[in-house]
Nucleic acid binder design. Structure first.
Lengths: 335, 335
DNA sequence: ACAGGTTTCTACAACGTTGTAAGCAACGTT
DNA sequence: AACGTTGCTTACAACGTTGTAGAAACCTGT
């Protein structure tokens, strides 16, 4: 019960190509012919076969967005903005979950060779410049951490500056034993490294010594990891009077652990996060955070990708920086 | 720099079809021929053109998952499970955001005619049976609310029983002024209606009168809506001693509003949600909820869809029910 | 009536893949 | 030696669409 151009053409008494012209809005079609064709299309409920069209055109109108995990709120919120920005260009977004593993990220990046998608917006956790080197010229935009000298365009925020600013905010409250939660053994340039660097810089600015024992690693950046890291910090000698978590979910986990330990936030321990996910605006207490302009990030990424898909293979990789702002909330209210 | 079967064939000195056979794992290919072909494939970094393959096969290997919003944690978690279940079948999942509007849902449902996807898993908020009637036989599975006599397979949980059970749990704590948050003017059979019915049934079971003023509507089911509804309940005469929110995000918003009003949970007001999102396991206090088996829901949906995609158009629409369990947490601890 | 231009329409080929059917070896059996 | 059988390979057509090139129809001004 599925119809083709041919069926419509026969019904309307014209050639296949004329129907194609009507479907594609080609100008020079006589009004009465057009009407007849449109009638036939409606009667048969004709819909173009996109596979055939894609094959013919070499374009699919689909881009992929590959993120580590959809149920990390930051990525879900980002995905919404990307879908919206892509929709304005008539693109459909295929969302891929890499799980943050290098292998799956590589597969996602390679998948763009399959002609199923016109381009890829990739938010890498594990991938390095080397991994990306082999991908010959298929349009790609990287989000988040910057892959130095990578072959692809990049959109991100200034992680170091943002981390420095929010740490300085904690310092400004008079806190001195400021812990960091979320450090990882990741490649140079990854978010964890950059945010740690900003943290360290802010401490140096304030003349506070960097104390290794106040830096808690987290294998992933989920709530459970934040809670575990916080519990660990509380069992070691020095109790922190403030914590900078490298993202909001870590911070929400930390809030939970502090609550279980009977500590008050912000009175005993001030807590700050990063990402500005919706949860943090409703948690008890609400969460001070760095709010990256996600909408802008998504829009820039789609624009960069569009330029490449439209044939620009000459411009060297571009590196755009989106704004962010510090959003102080209850978790760091002055005592 | 993109290669086709033809290029590989020339390089390996065989016919195009032989290369195709190698790519598709056809049995009768001499080992040395196969080796030569594979070498050529590797040298040219050949990847099949999926548009062409799809055109030829009439299948795309892509299914769509249409959900109202990705940044509602329940749908994000569900999406992860669907992606995983689909991956086991070699399917890619294209995720679509409908925003819960009837129009966008209709577009998503109609999009399956475009031959871009083999089937659709749709989680409708606004769509009615009538909307779905016009879709001639393209495979579709509905999630969540049941569309009575709809033309499609359905997977859900027993909303009425679950709502009744969790309300009974509140009754069991000795609470009597039990509010409901999240009612909506939706079509018969929608989640809001079903959960309200379960709530009412549990009250009746316990001999508690149904009090209209304890039922708060919520235009959407976000945190902000839950907070607003809770604030509204607190300003009206009767202060509830328990609240059943129709989903977890509403409940998290309600927790926030209760906190701002200086009320303790669960001592002053017990709070229960629905969906078992991750946030509720880390909130302060942790959230009592109904935990639907999301993994099972996703798996069943993919299986039902697979049967239809594989050609079964005869079996009448099936209706599967996934299990759930009550997860009691801090927000309803006995006084 | 006719050249010259414009508008409208069409036939054909191609996009890259795979199913079909048939061809060609090589082998074992009579 | 002729035969069927099996294993391996290939030519061809088709999937449904659109770009190209050109034919047909229609104008316009002489």
């Amino acid at each position: 019960m599925r119809h083709r151009l041919k069926d419509v053409a026969e019904r309307a008494g014209v050639s296949v190509k004329t129907v194609s012209n009507v479907v594609n809005g080609y100008l020079h079609v006589r009004p009465d012919t057009r009407a007849r064709v449109e009638e036939a299309i409606a009667e048969l409920n004709y819909r173009p076969n996109l596979s055939a069209r894609n094959l013919r055109k070499g374009r699919t109108g689909v881009i992929a967005l590959a993120v580590p995990e959809l149920d990390i709120p930051y990525f879900a919120e980002l995905a919404r903005h990307v879908v919206a920005a892509a929709a304005e260009r008539g693109w459909t977004v295929l969302i891929d979950q890499t799980g943050g593993g290098a292998e799956r990220e590589r597969v996602a990046a390679a998948g763009i060779g399959d002609h199923l998608i016109d381009g890829l917006i990739l938010s890498p956790l594990a991938l390095t410049a080397d991994d990306l080197a082999g991908l010959d010229g298929t349009p790609m935009v990287l989000l988040g951490e910057r892959v130095d000298h990578g072959p692809a365009d990049h959109v991100g925020i200034d992680n170091v500056a943002a981390a420095r600013e929010i740490t300085a905010h904690l310092v400004g409250l008079g806190r001195r034993r400021i812990a960091a939660v979320g450090s990882q053994r990741t490649p140079e340039g990854a978010s964890a490294r950059l945010r740690l660097a900003g943290y360290a810089a802010a401490l140096a600015d304030a003349g506070i010594g960097y104390d290794e024992s106040l830096v808690a690693p987290a294998p992933a950046w989920h709530r459970a990891d934040g809670a575990a890291a916080m519990r660990h910090l509380l069992t070691t000698g020095v109790r922190p009077d403030a914590v900078f978590c490298f993202n909001d979910t870590l911070a929400l986990g930390a809030l939970r652990a502090l609550h279980e330990a009977g500590l008050r936030v912000p009175e005993d321990v001030a807590v700050a996060g990063f990402d500005d996910i919706e949860d943090g605006r409703f948690s008890v207490p609400t969460l001070t955070t760095i709010a990256p302009d996600k909408e802008r990030i998504a829009r820039l990424a789609v624009e960069l990708l569009a330029a490449r898909v439209d044939g620009d293979r000459e411009t060297p990789p571009r590196d755009l920086t989106a704004p962010y702002r510090l959003a102080p909330r209850e978790s760091t209210h002055p005592r």
